[in-house]
Design a protein around this nucleic acid. Structure first.
Lengths: 246, 246
DNA sequence: CGCGCACTTGACTTGTGTCAAACTAGGTGG
DNA sequence: CCACCTAGTTTGACACAAGTCAAGTGCGCG
């Protein structure tokens, strides 16, 4: 892990180099992150607590069962949140994208491990310091709690998917859900970047890599999607939503 | 739904009849509920906001997608939290037991429906009034948030179970988990009451009723458990934990 | 006593997993 | 610039865990 000294970000966006330290006020993800509930003077305080951190692809931000000494706000890139069973079976609990907050659980140990799928930039806060700020700002706590509630709803969606949906429905549902997430981030498009590999999708959907591959091929053959390098283009989003059967 | 006028509770515990209204101070589940973080004077306020409510077996406390006009604390009995797919497929998201709080999500609509599996007593709070109290008492909000974090961890356990475990592991894991929950409620025992039917277990574990039945029979035949009317006795808890493979 | 409901059991089917081989694209070095 | 290597992905043939369908069993209740 390296402290970001102001280098250009991973997706190639132009970067000013004017500021030696990160500034919350013009943070790219502020409007979609927990920080959006903070006033300007509160942001100034936050700015003194947080530090940018850059990860290379495949670097681990934190590991399952590790003491949770920090919480993070994702600025750029995407991460995989994984839980491992002792015999090697893996379940991907989710993918973190810009604007997501990591460490919601507020427990003393992480319940999943987080690894970078692409080069990643996060804003890191010492748990103690962040906790003190939260205790001082009830509206921040409320915002975190609302996020936790939303996460819980998403977790329920996923339980329904894992417990009761067919392989085709899972894959369709995954693509539709990803599209909605990108849309909420302001990246609405019919072409979806898939920063995760097939194995990650499989471990997220409770399937094998082969089944995911077969379902994508099927969707491709019937012209519902078009598989492109590094992602997927949705040719018939309506049909995909019908298949997702939510 | 009937307002509890002070009748004896469903599990046959003696009931004083001294009090026309419920008293938080000597509430049976206070030590294990969110209310445990409130001081005596705060409890007095809470007492004016809450009302006991009794449900018969099979009665619906609230339905999925219904506007969430109230939140609840379970006092007695057990409920099933269900999510339904349009074509009838069902996923049981969990079972609520005494001490559990319903309505954590703090969203405007319920994401699941809640039905009584046994006669149930809950403490009902108007959402607006309860929300106002929460806004006034940050430590209550923190307690709710901690609960939400815990729920999230449990949801992740369940996702791992649904995505990656075999039928036998699921059933074993369910029994072990239920035992731990009862233990935390002060009902530690090797004999577990199962207030839910086989179909509910199946819908919780992402299996069919037949598979659940077969796995229980298998556990019974190999003397790991003993199936008794209305529940299960754990004959070899260690073996069950090994099968659960957590 | 007998009806109804929940549960169990058996025979068979099937969706998804497993194993193994072939393909593809991106990167590296001769 | 092309040949090779590697890692990820796709495809095919086959196996099996769990689902489906259809009887049975047993128990509680009127």
């Amino acid at each position: 892990m390296l402290v970001d000294t102001g280098s250009c970000d991973a997706f190639g966006t132009a970067c000013s180099h004017r500021r030696p330290r990160n500034s919350c006020v013009d943070c790219k993800v502020r409007p979609i992150s927990v920080c959006s509930v903070l006033a300007l003077d509160e942001l100034a305080v936050l700015e003194t607590l947080g530090q940018h951190l850059s990860l290379d692809k495949r670097q681990v931000l934190y590991g399952q069962e590790e003491p949770a000494e920090a919480v993070f706000n994702v600025i750029d890139g995407s991460l995989r949140l994984t839980r491992l069973l002792s015999d090697g079976r893996r379940q991907v609990m989710g993918f973190a994208l810009p604007g997501d907050f990591l460490g919601l659980a507020r427990e003393d140990r992480f319940s999943v491990s987080a690894e970078a799928l692409t080069p990643v930039t996060v804003c890191r806060f010492e748990r103690r310091a962040f906790g003190a700020l939260v205790d001082d700002k009830p509206h921040l706590l409320r915002s975190l709690h609302e996020r936790a509630g939303h996460e819980l709803t998403l977790a329920q969606d996923q339980m329904l998917l894992l417990g009761r949906r067919t392989a085709e429905e899972r894959v369709a549902s995954f693509l539709v859900g990803l599209r909605e997430r990108y849309a909420r981030m302001g990246r609405a498009s019919v072409t979806l970047e898939l920063p995760m590999g097939r194995q990650d999708m499989a471990d997220y959907l409770g399937l094998t890599i082969e089944t995911v591959s077969r379902m994508l091929t099927r969707l491709d053959r019937e012209r519902t999607v078009l598989i492109v390098p590094g992602g997927v283009r949705l040719l018939d989003p309506a049909r995909l939503e019908a298949l997702a059967a939510s």
